[in-house]
């Protein structure tokens, strides 16, 4: 089963469940953030977008103290698959499950737009349905999406192949105009060293129907489903 964590202020929780359940046909439930444990049959955890705790103090800074996060950490430490989109990505960074931080967008404005991202590696449980170098068209909508790590840390992440998605143009070429928020290295998504925790600013759950945002989100969420079917560890 897929578990979508519902923090107070989560907005895309129901959309994520819709994508997994109604579009991909996978069992999926919302799990309340005050729960101390994940349901025992959970095979992947999804941290959705939104404004957990209003994004007050700092995006994701309070959600990481929700009781469920201890269980998510244990799950990840045991090799469980964890995907965070947008606010979920911010929570994972705040929780230290992913490297780096998400800062205010470079132009200081919230941005809602469709962007292109290049798949830097297809050998992860989150990108196996794509091929390396493939360009996905996905929506972004965030005010704090500028990925930041120190330059030496970025080099290290690149060396350890932890950069999974980068902003690019429709042809797959990186350029400042294609980066919607000023992320270092045009980073749109990163995974942990082990490769079982992945965070991205774009919203795959909003690109799962041809006439509503397109189908490229399935490259991410479908990959996760494939990985679970192939036997990912449970909670």
């Amino acid at each position: 089963m897929f578990a979508v964590v519902q923090f107070p202020g989560s907005n895309d929780d129901r959309d994520m469940r819709f994508a997994m359940k109604s579009v991909l046909g996978a069992p999926c439930a919302l799990v309340w953030h005050k729960e101390a444990a994940l349901p025992s049959d959970v095979r992947a955890v999804l941290l959705p977008g939104g404004f957990s705790y209003g994004d007050y103090l700092r995006c994701g800074a309070m959600a990481r103290f929700s009781p469920i996060m201890a269980a998510v950490r244990r799950f990840a430490d045991a090799g469980g698959l964890v995907l965070g989109t947008c606010n979920g990505f911010q929570v994972l960074c705040e929780a230290g499950l992913l490297p780096g931080a998400l800062l205010r967008n470079q132009d200081l404005h919230f941005v809602c737009d469709v962007v292109h991202v290049r798949v830097e590696r297809a050998d992860t449980p989150f990108t196996s349905r794509a091929r390396t170098g493939a360009v996905l068209q996905l929506p972004v909508k965030h005010g704090d999406g500028a990925y930041y790590v120190r330059p030496d840390e970025l080099t290290r992440l690149e060396a350890s192949r932890q950069i999974v998605l980068r902003y690019c143009d429709a042809a797959g070429v990186r350029s400042p105009g294609a980066n919607p928020n000023g992320s270092v290295g045009d980073v749109a998504g990163v995974c942990n060293a082990r490769g079982n925790v992945f965070g991205l600013m774009p919203h795959p759950e909003h690109a799962v129907e041809a006439a509503i945002g397109g189908l490229d989100g399935l490259a991410i969420l479908g990959s996760l489903l494939d990985a679970v079917k192939a036997g990912a560890p449970s909670a």
Partner: peptide, 14 residues
């Protein structure tokens, strides 16, 4: 103006 608004949440925007 509208780039600053979330136009997509709830996943119904055709």
């Amino acid at each position: 103006i509208w780039r600053q608004y979330d136009q997509l949440v709830q996943g119904n925007t055709i």
